[in-house]
Computed example of a mutant assay.
Amino acid sequence: MRPYLFALSLAAALAAGAAQAQPTTVVVRARALDAKFIGTHVGGAQVTLTDARTGKTLASGKIEGATGDTPKLMVQPAARNAPLADADTARFTAQLDITEPTLVRAVVRAPAGMEASSTLWVLPGRNIEGDGWVLSFPGLIVEPSAVVGADRKAMVHAKVALMCGCPIEPKGLWDAANYTVSAELTRKGAEPVRFPLAYAGTKSEFAAPTPTPLAPGAYRLRIIATDATTPNAGVADTDLVVK
């Protein structure tokens, strides 16, 4: 074959290969274990899609939107393959230009430092829509705080919620009676002070005073929350200074 004919053939082959790239839609969602979808209410979740074999980043963005239909997700019996998400349910939508089957890795970073990852074969032109690619997030969001009074006792508070921000309350869908919340105050050279927190009368709020006055110094406050019915748990630390 003459050189110029070979060059033309090669160019045509490359053009044909490039033409095979097809925009492929991939919808990614994050759902809290035993709860609803993670979305804007808790700050969303960051998504990165990469080629699992090469490490190349294919798309990135944020899951945003609503937590979903409560009756459909938490009350009605789930029928196999029945859609759970609606048009408003939180999601990240990526458009991937791929020319061949690609093993894609999704890494999703949610609130409270939680992360989940999964891999999935994505084929050119085979859109992943509807409920999409759903990653599950066990855990609880815990936000601790404390105020020291003149008597050197501290009133310790903790806001505890599901990863979707869904509230915990007595006799609610997430019953406060199923959750154990405790506090631990540690100070260098002293025995830890541990005590339980009780539901404080407001959704997701737990509180209790320290059992005794605290000696002056710098403390580390740790809140631990667990659910008796699922693996869900959360831990958060903050600093506390007693003068």
Rank of each mutant, 00 (worst) to 15 (best):
T40V: 02
P124G: 00
E191L: 12
A190L: 10
A94H: 05
F137D: 00
G172S: 12
V122I: 06
I224Y: 15
G113M: 08
Y4R: 14
A78R: 15
R29L: 00
G43Y: 08
F137N: 00
G68A: 01
A190G: 05
P83Y: 09
I98Y: 05
R29A: 04
R126Y: 06
N178T: 09
I224W: 13
V122P: 04
P3Q: 14
M1D: 14
R187M: 14
P209Q: 15
P101F: 13
D88T: 10
T202L: 12
I128F: 06
K159S: 07
A233H: 06
D227N: 03
P71K: 06
T50A: 07
A200Y: 13
P213E: 07
G201H: 03
T50E: 12
F6P: 00
R31C: 08
F137P: 01
L8M: 13
D97A: 09
A158D: 09
L120K: 12
G44K: 05
A85N: 04
G189S: 04
G113F: 01
E100A: 11
S60M: 13
K171E: 15
L73M: 07
S117K: 15
P170H: 08
A45F: 03
A35I: 06
E115A: 01
R194S: 08
L162V: 05
V156K: 10
V42Q: 02
